[in-house]
Amino acid sequence: MNEEEFLKIVLPFKDKLFRLAKRYLISHDAAQDATQDVLLKLWLNRSKITMYKNVEAFAMTMVKNKCLDELKLKNAQNLKIVHSNYKDENSNLSKETETNDSISIVEKLINELPEKQRIIIQLRDVEQYTFEEIGKILEIKQTAIRVSLSRARKTIRQKLIKYHNYGIK
């Protein structure tokens, strides 16, 4: 497989890989490194790529595993990934939309969710994968996905309503 063919396969979901990595690791830079790492691995194994039916789901799983490794490593070293680019991100968002800061509140709420719920929200509500695809990527059962998804959505709703009312009262 040459470079052009590889790019044709990989480019359409490159951004999705990055967004998933960022949802796991929160930090922009860490997500960038993880994505780079996964793409490099894909390139090195490009001869086997065509063997997989769904390269995208396979790559997403690779990102998941890479990020979990990364988080485990950080835990072992007693380091927390610092949410250093929270502010930066928020200012970007408000510049782009200028609607209100409740959008960035949503981001904060999502990132406060437990890891599994966070990722499922990302895959379903942002990337709009089917439950079957999510099951494949995360290697879990579809019923478990539904439960987590419902829980995550309800938590966000609850906190949003709280925030919304706080703004009024």
Partner: peptide, 28 residues
Amino acid sequence: LEQYQAMFAYFAQNKKEKAPQNIQVKPS
């Protein structure tokens, strides 16, 4: 229903987030 607006707006917006340019797809 206003409080849900931010939620869906965020989903739509996050979907547009691009990977940084300096990620090399082909590193050789």
